[in-house]
Simulated assay, not measured.
Amino acid sequence: MTTPSPAPLTDSHSHLDVAEFDTDRDAVIARARAAGVTRQVIPAISRAGWDALAALCRTHDGLHPAYGLHPMYLPEHRPEHLADLADTLARERPVAVGECGLDYFVTDLDPDAQRRYFDGQLELAREFDLPLIVHARRAVDEVIARVRRVGGLRGVVHSYSGSYEQASQLWKAGFCLGFGGPVTYERARRLRDIVARMPLEFLLLESDAPDQPLASRRGERNEPMHVAEVLDHVASLRGESRETIAAATRANAARLFALPD
């Protein structure tokens, strides 16, 4: 049983729109709210899902869409989708551009094509003055370099997995770092050290549901409700109260994504 948060929480990264939740999405939202997770930022993964994501977020309070082209779904992307993204950003005014980024862990994803889509989304984020939701797997240095080259950007690197030095470069550039299930594993020593020592004003909580289940729930479908358990681990690692972490991470998400009170 997940212990409810002492203060309202924001899940800064869930994929509540995907097929894994088609049979019980309303119940998943209800369980999240019962655990104190009252807001969710839901980044898109490909052009095909944008319309359904928009409809979902219009239907439920506390759900906030972002639109983008995820690098792991590269085979689904087409060059004209960047123009479609510009039109969607202008029409929908979402909370962010994303999920976008680079993934050099999956070996059959063409790096040059990934870079073209990522660079295009960086430019759109600057043009529309929106934050970015960035996926960076085995690509943190290149993500930092490309963000710096465009300039004038802000956002979050979600499910952060880089070094402390890379993390410091990101928050000095105004980027937050998102942490979820991986921080609950005792073997994730480097990650847990970053969470323990980083400035609280750049820390966000996330589920990445339905992926990245917590250590206590290996093999299960992840849900936004479990952000309340991530909160417990972060508070313990930092030696701070659950109330302090809950309030700070909610404020951080509100500031980054311009979420309403």
Rank of each mutant, 00 (worst) to 15 (best):
Q114Y: 13
G155T: 01
E206W: 04
R138P: 06
R146E: 00
M198V: 02
S168W: 06
R138Q: 15
R148F: 03
D110N: 14
E142F: 08
S163H: 08
G162A: 08
A167P: 02
R217T: 14
L132Q: 00
G151H: 12
E142I: 00
P131Y: 13
G162Y: 13
D108T: 13
R192N: 04
S216Q: 15
F128V: 02
G101V: 00
H135D: 08
E206L: 13
R137L: 11
G180Q: 08
V95D: 07
R192A: 11
L205C: 13
A136L: 05
T107C: 07
F118G: 09
A167Q: 14
P131N: 12
F202C: 06
V183T: 15
G98N: 07
Q169L: 15
V150K: 05
R192F: 03
Q114K: 14
G162V: 00
E206Q: 05
I133T: 09
V157G: 00
R146P: 02
G98Y: 06
E165W: 02
Y164H: 11
Q121I: 06
E201Y: 04
Y185V: 05
G120Y: 02
L205P: 06
P199Q: 05
L109Q: 01
S161V: 06
S216V: 13
F128H: 14
T184Q: 01
L205W: 02
A173K: 02
E186L: 14
A196C: 11
Y185A: 12
G174P: 01
L109Y: 08
F128Y: 15
E123G: 09
F128P: 04
L191Y: 11
R218P: 01
L153S: 03
L177C: 11
R192M: 08
Y117Q: 10
R187T: 14
E186R: 15
F118Y: 05
V147K: 01
I144K: 07
L191A: 03
K172I: 04
L200P: 05
L124P: 09
L200N: 10
L122A: 06
D110L: 02
K172T: 14
D119N: 12
A113S: 12
E99T: 12
S207E: 07
L153F: 03
A215M: 14
D103K: 08
E206N: 12
P213L: 12
A215N: 14
G98F: 08
D110Y: 05
P182V: 01
Y185K: 11
S168V: 06
T107K: 12
Q212E: 02
E127C: 05
E99R: 14
G152L: 14
